[in-house]
Structure formats: structure tokens, C-alpha cells
Design a protein around this nucleic acid. Structure first.
Lengths: 202, 202
DNA sequence: GAAAGATAACCGACCGGTTGGTATAGTAAT
DNA sequence: ATTACTATACCAACCGGTCGGTTATCTTTC
């Protein structure tokens, strides 16, 4: 059998899936070996430890997630010039994408890791925190742009509103996962969208 | 030394704390033994397996949580006759209580278990799901009462609005935990409160 | 009221299995 | 020669769980 070149990625795929299913601690290296059909030597050729795998996992997830959100923001930007309209379009795109997103990975790796945070070295926790903060900042700068053009009538804390998007997505994902109702997340995003519209365009 | 009668509770306390810190899988019985200052025999006298402990843990958490929410609803009911006002008062009470709640246990045990759901026997997963559904129903019946008196101008799906409270709390808890900013959860509850007011009393 | 028995609460050595991780020799393609 | 593994053997640490005792306290019997 010729050696493949995508083994590292396949390990990460299987690991991500296993983490989302039962958590990081429950994911043994043997389960990965079985899923990817490699031996122990093969695994440790690519990752020097389980902690190393965890780091690679969050890094890949972080990159993919931000690039997805980024590209959706850019797509929304091509569809309107108005900052509020752009945000509303983005949220609509996000809402629609959650269907496929959910099937691909029904859960957030960052959230999953957050609940086992004591298991990892500090730098992984730091990476996750920074990932969330970057997400928050991305939303916040959009909201600030909106607020300049549409000053809200009621006093509104914009960072809180940025947090609200993260909370909506994370909360929605958890409830979708736990209750097995995949439409919860998109419906909650729709409510966030409506809330924004009510605030900025009463 | 006389045998104590509260060991079972002390085990549950320590276990709950450990689960919220690093997840259930990462919580070994030896860690509990150390925290409670008992031996292995002592632990297995009270719980016949780790799975048995998990069951006891979610049951106790479920009871405490629903009784807390229930009592807060009842307290709100004594402060107003208007169904909308009652809900808004309840949310204010909930918002204020999260300070102490957070210090006592910075996280939701149900959420933590949800991310490791494959680790447990099915009945535990079922119990968690039913717990969430009961919570949803509790909120929903209140919202229905409000909607009868204050028909919303924009068409609003009430079950979704009930889900939104759960999502807000769970999302807020996760973000509070992960970012180490305990005010995120109460601020998000306040936004949910404002959204409800905007919907039912424009 | 003292001895005997029952019981609840707990101790700690031990067991088999699993875990993350290492070592080493070999292979097949580039 | 380097890369990308396979195959097998192995290790120490840790894991959940068992089991035969032990201790303190309450209860019953004489």
C-alpha cells in the first residue's frame, strides 16, 4: 500500500469528530487509530503527544471558523452598502449556513474544549479565549459602524450586543445538540437578527 | 472519630465542582477521594459505580435548578398581577441571582454533561433532555399567558422565544466561564428581558 | 445494666484493564 | 537518503471496581 499524504488531516478530521461526540478525554488515541486505520507509530509520527493534537485541533478549527465568518461578511458586503443591511444579510447567510454546518459538525470545538479546560495546557486555553475575543471584535466593529449611522434610541452597550451573537450561537448549538433539534440554532440567529433591527431601525 | 452522616452530599459537592472544572471523564474517583478525604471503599459504599454518581449528580442538579427557578417565579408572582410584568420581574431576579450562582458553580452541569453525552448511559441523557424540556415548558406557559393579554404586533413563535431564554443562559454561562467575565451572563439576561419588552409592549 | 448482636460507615490492599507514550526493526515509494 | 508509514512489543501510570476487614454507634436480649 502506497503511503498517503493526507493522513495528518484525516487524523484531525477523526479527532474533531470524536471530540464533538464525547469530549476530548473520552477520545483515546486508539479510537483515532481505528477510525483512520493507522497504527500507533503512525499517529505519533504526526503528533508528538495528545496535547499536541489538541493544539493542532483548536488551531485548525479557529482558522476555519474565522475564515468562514470572514468570507460571509465579505459576501454580505458585496450585496449592500448600508452597514445595517450588511449585518442583517450576514446574519441571514449565517442562519442559512447552519444547516450544512450542523451536519458537518454538530457542535463547537471551542465550547467542547471549554468544558474540559483544566485538561489542557494554558496556551490552549489562551488560544480559545483569543479566538472568542477575535470573533467578538469582528462583530463589534460592524455594530459600531451601524451605530454611527443609526444611533439607537435606547442606550445600548455595543460590546454586550457583540457578546450576544456569540452567546446566541453557542447556546443555540448546545440546545440543538442536546435536544436533537437542528433548527434551534438558525431560529435563534433569526431572533438575534430581529433584535438588532428593532434596536437600530425601530 | 465518629462516622459522619453528610459524606454522600460532600462527595456530590466535590464531584460537581470537579465536573464543572474539567469535565466528567477527567474527574477520577481518586480526585474525589482526595477532596472529600475518604478512601476508595468509602466512595463505593455510597455509589455503586461512577455512572451511579453521574446519575445522582444530574438528579440533584435538576431538582435544585427547577426549585430555584420555580421559587423565583413564585416570588415574581407576589410582586405583580400582570403576566408580562411578572416575567420581567422574574428575569430581573434571575439576572441578579447570577452573581451568587456564578460563584457557587460557574457553569451548568447539564451543559457540561451534554458535551460528553456519549460517555453516559442513555437514561442520563434522557434525564438531561427532559430537564431542558421542562425548563422550556415553564417559560413557554408564561409567555403564552403574556401573549393572550399582549398580542405581539409582529408574528412571534413562542416556543422559539422560550428556547431563547435557555440559549441565553447557556451561551452566557459558557462565555462567562471561558472569558472569565462573570458579568456576561447577567447582561445577556438583561438583553433577553429587553427583547421581550420590545415584542410584547412596543 | 452489661454482654451480644446488628448495622452503617468506612479503610486500604489489590486486581484486571486501559491509557498515553516509547522503542525498534522493517518496508515501500519518491 | 528521506518521507511516511507498518508491525510488534513494551512500559509505567492510572483507571474503575472488588473485597475482606475494622470501627463506632445503636438495639436487643438476658
Amino acid at each position: 500500500m502506497p503511503p498517503r499524504t493526507d493522513t495528518r488531516e484525516r487524523i484531525l478530521d477523526a479527532a474533531e469528530c470524536l471530540v464533538l461526540e464525547g469530549g476530548f478525554s473520552a477520545m483515546s488515541i486508539e479510537k483515532i487509530m481505528e477510525a483512520v486505520q493507522i497504527t500507533k507509530g503512525g499517529f505519533f509520527y504526526h503528533f508528538k503527544s495528545k496535547d499536541d493534537l489538541a493544539r493542532a485541533l483548536v488551531e485548525r478549527y479557529g482558522e476555519r471558523d474565522t475564515s468562514l465568518v470572514q468570507s460571509m461578511f465579505e459576501r454580505a458586503d458585496t450585496l449592500s452598502d448600508d452597514p445595517l443591511e450588511r449585518m442583517l444579510i450576514f446574519l441571514k447567510l449565517y442562519e442559512e449556513s447552519t444547516d450544512k454546518l450542523y451536519l458537518a459538525s454538530p457542535g463547537c470545538l471551542f465550547a467542547s474544549f471549554s468544558y474540559e479546560i483544566r485538561e489542557f495546557s494554558d496556551d490552549i486555553g489562551k488560544f480559545i479565549r483569543e479566538g472568542f475575543l477575535a470573533w467578538r471584535q469582528l462583530t463589534l466593529s460592524r455594530l459600531e459602524e451601524i451605530a454611527r449611522q443609526y444611533p439607537p434610541t435606547v442606550e445600548t452597550d455595543l460590546p454586550e450586543l457583540a457578546d450576544m451573537f456569540m452567546c446566541t450561537v453557542e447556546g443555540g448549538l448546545l440546545m440543538s445538540r442536546t435536544l436533537g433539534q437542528e433548527d434551534i440554532l438558525p431560529r435563534q440567529v433569526a431572533h438575534y437578527r430581529r433584535y438588532l433591527r428593532m434596536i437600530f431601525r425601530p
